[in-house]
Structures are given as structure tokens and as C-alpha cells.
Design a protein around this nucleic acid. Structure first.
Lengths: 120, 120
DNA sequence: ATTTTTCATCGTAAAAATACGATAAAAAAC
DNA sequence: GTTTTTTATCGTATTTTTACGATGAAAAAT
């Protein structure tokens, strides 16, 4: 007898919703790092105190609008902070979130725990 | 005068190709970790010596075929290794690659270098 | 020999990511 | 006041990811 899966009710149930705690958090940060352009941007920023959007546009092999889009994703992930300095916008690392991400990756690769929420 | 972008020749040029070295490598591993199901799978594996596909299917809120797909992505990234034990398939961490990824993330978060290829 | 178990793969649909050019907004420069 | 500079956002096309059920293969169990 064919049975539907209990988690797939109607159209496209998103099982990602089912995940919680550090598992979800870590996946979120990993996703933010999952594009070389965003790695580059963060590498760039981890040296200078700040950079302008134009600085990234200069060094990345993509259109300005695409760079802006990548910056937005990093913003949304919380890893960087935008500062309006009209007509320019500068960006800097959000150190609090940066350290949090660093910790999560450290823990993950050290495999100290299986618990989702072992470290709060 | 409207000018095309130098990197956008015909249909959909993929600028990801332009990135190299550890930037690209790191983004690749980050992508492999960019889904909570895959984080869970790796967490699972970093405890036991190995797990069967069915073990993951039991604990993940998704269909068996989807779990297989996630396992494939981790395989393709090199992070896990499949072992045929008919009729089952067991998986284990690929420790060499695991350590490599760990190192890249460590370096990245320590921001010791701006070079793509500082650590070979 | 047939059935069952286990799992990858196929086919496919829906959603998300990635890219571009064009446009708009907002301050600076002229 | 107009132009220029800078950057985010809009609209859109393409590709990739994520998900499912169905199917097939291969060994074990019956």
C-alpha cells in the first residue's frame, strides 16, 4: 500500500523547518559562506576595519548589482554591518556574530558533542 | 551606450569559475554544510565509526530518497565515504578531507591571511 | 524460486540562488 | 540647479538545490 510521508502534506513542505538549535544556526552560517565571492568579501573585511561597496566591486569578477546582492546575504546572515556614509556605504565585520560562527564551526569540527544545543 | 559586462558573454557566464585556491575550496565545503540535514549526518558520523543509510533515514524528517541525495552531496564533497555491505551501505567520515576542511575554516576565522593560497 | 530488505537513481516539480541590466535615491560636486 | 558618483533594489532569466514518489538492483531471508 502506498503511503504518503508524514512530513509531506500538500505542496512542498520544507523539512528545514524541523531542524533547530545549533544545527540550524551552523547551516545558516555555512550557507552564507557557500559562495567564493562571499568568502572573498569576508577575507577582505577581516583585514581592513571597513571597506566600501566599490572596493569589492573592483576585485570581484561580477556586476555591481550582484556584489550588492552578496553583501545583502552576508548582512542578512548577520556577519557584516553596513554603515551609510553617503554617497557611499561602508561595511565591516560584525565581530559578535563572527565569533559566534567561529565557535560553532570549531565545536562542529571538534565533534565534542552530538547535542543540538550543548553549547547555548 | 549600453555595454555588456566583460564576464557575461553569451548566456549565463558563471563567475564562480573565476575563483581559485582556498577561496573556492572553502566555499565548496561551506556549501556541503549549508543544509541542516547534512550537518546532522556529519554530527552523527563524527561519533560512531560508521552508520547505515537507514540510521539517517530514521532520524531525519525527510524521505529516504532525499536523505540519499544529501549523502551523495557529502560524498561528492569528499567529506564521507560509502562502504557497500549488501544489502546495506555504511558511511563514515573521510578523516583526511575532514581535517582539511577543519583547517580551512580555522584559518578563515583566524583571518591569518588574505592570500588565496597561503596555506597549500 | 520467490519475497523482502535496503538503498541509489530516475523523473519531476517547486523553490532558492545567482547573475545581469536598468532604474532610483541621495548626497556630493560642479 | 544640474550633473556626477555611489549603491541598493527591481525585474527577469538561468541554474542549482531541495523535495517527493516510483523504480531498479542486489543481496538476504523465506
Amino acid at each position: 500500500m502506498p503511503q504518503g510521508h508524514k512530513f509531506y502534506k500538500k505542496k512542498c513542505y520544507n523539512p528545514r523547518k524541523e531542524f533547530q538549535g545549533t544545527t540550524r544556526e551552523l547551516a545558516r552560517y555555512a550557507k552564507a559562506l557557500a559562495h567564493p565571492a562571499r568568502i572573498k568579501i569576508l577575507r577582505f573585511l577581516s583585514h581592513s576595519d571597513f571597506c566600501y561597496t566599490g572596493d569589492f566591486v573592483e576585485v570581484l569578477p561580477m556586476a555591481q548589482s550582484t556584489v550588492s546582492q552578496h553583501l545583502k546575504e552576508l548582512r542578512d546572515a548577520g556577519l557584516i554591518i553596513a554603515n551609510e556614509q553617503p554617497p557611499r556605504v561602508s561595511y565591516c565585520i560584525n565581530h559578535e556574530v563572527w565569533e559566534r560562527a567561529k565557535l560553532l564551526f570549531q565545536d562542529f569540527f571538534s565533534a565534542l558533542t552530538d547535542e543540538d544545543d550543548a553549547r547555548p
